[in-house]
Design a protein around this nucleic acid. Sequence first.
DNA 1: CCAGCTGAGTTCGGAATCAGAACTCTAGCT
DNA 2: AGCTAGAGTTCTGATTCCGAACTCAGCTGG
Lengths: 148, 148
Amino acid sequence: MRHAQIADLPCTVARPAALLGERWMLLLLRQVFLGTRRFEDFQSAMEISRSVLADRLGMLVDEGVLRRVPYAHEGRTRHEYRLTEKGMDLYPVLVALRTWGERWMAPADGEQFQLHHRDCGGDVRAKVECVECGAGLTARDVRVTPTA
Amino acid sequence: MRHAQIADLPCTVARPAALLGERWMLLLLRQVFLGTRRFEDFQSAMEISRSVLADRLGMLVDEGVLRRVPYAHEGRTRHEYRLTEKGMDLYPVLVALRTWGERWMAPADGEQFQLHHRDCGGDVRAKVECVECGAGLTARDVRVTPTA
DNA sequence: CCAGCTGAGTTCGGAATCAGAACTCTAGCT
DNA sequence: AGCTAGAGTTCTGATTCCGAACTCAGCTGG
C-alpha cells in the first residue's frame, strides 16, 4: 500500500495519522503553536526546504487545520497562516507528545520553553480520561471493542 | 536541515516528533495498541512493505518503545514485539489522535472499534489539564515561556 | 536424509520524495 | 527604472520507498 492511501481508511486514528505522520508535519505544528505564522519565519525556524514547507502548509490549509489570512505588513498585503478551530483542537496531540518527551526523551540541558496554565500558573499535561467517571486512564484500563 | 536531525534538537516536542513523524510510525503504533505483535501480522494488517516495516520496528526497539520477546509457537522459537513501559506511555498520543479524528475526520460509516473504560464502561478521551488546579485546558489557556 | 513449509526478515531496481540552491513574481520605496 | 522583501516555484542530484524476489533457520512429513 502507498502511504498516501492511509488517509482513506475508515479509521479515526489512521486518518489523522496519515496527515500528522507526514514528514515535518508535527514539527510544523509545534512551530504553529509556538506562534509562528509566516512562511519565512517557518523556514528559518525549522530550516526546512522551501518546497516541502510550501507543500505541507498547503496540505494543512486543504485539511482546514490552517487558514491563509491576508494582513498588512509595512504597507503591503502579506499572508499568514493561522490555526482554525479544527487546528486549535490539535493541541492535545502536541501536548501529549511533549508530556511523553519530558518523561522519556528529556534533553540533558533542560527545556527550551515552559507551559503554564494562565489562570493559576500550574504545569500543563496531557492525559487520557474516562468521560463518565473522570478517572485518569492508561492503556491497560481501556477495553477495545470492534464495532459490529 | 535533514529530517533525521530533528531528533537532535534539545526540545521535548521535536524529539518525539522526529520518531513518531516517520512515515508509518503512527499507524504502526495504532496497530500495536490494538494488540498486534508479530511481524507477519503487522505486515498483513497494514499492507506496509516488509523492508520499511523491519526498519520501523527496529527504530522502535532501538528507542525502547518496543521489546523483541522470544516465545514458543508450534514448537518453535519466534519473536514478538511488545510495548515497554515507555511504549505504553505513548497511549495518550494515540488517544489524542483519535479524539481529534472522531471530531474532525469521522468516516461516514462510523468507527471500526470503540474504546471503553474497563471499570465503568465510559467513553475514553484525551485532554489537556492543569496539574495544579485540574482544569481542562485549550491552547488559549496556556502561556508559553522561553526558558532563560 | 531430503523436500517442503512458515515466520521473519534482507536485497535489489525502478519510482517517488527530499534538500538546497537558484529562479520568479508581486508590490512598494527611492 | 532599479532595488528590496516576502512568498513561493523550479530544478537536479541524493534519499527513501515500494514491491517482488530471495535468504535463512528450524520443524515435519516421507
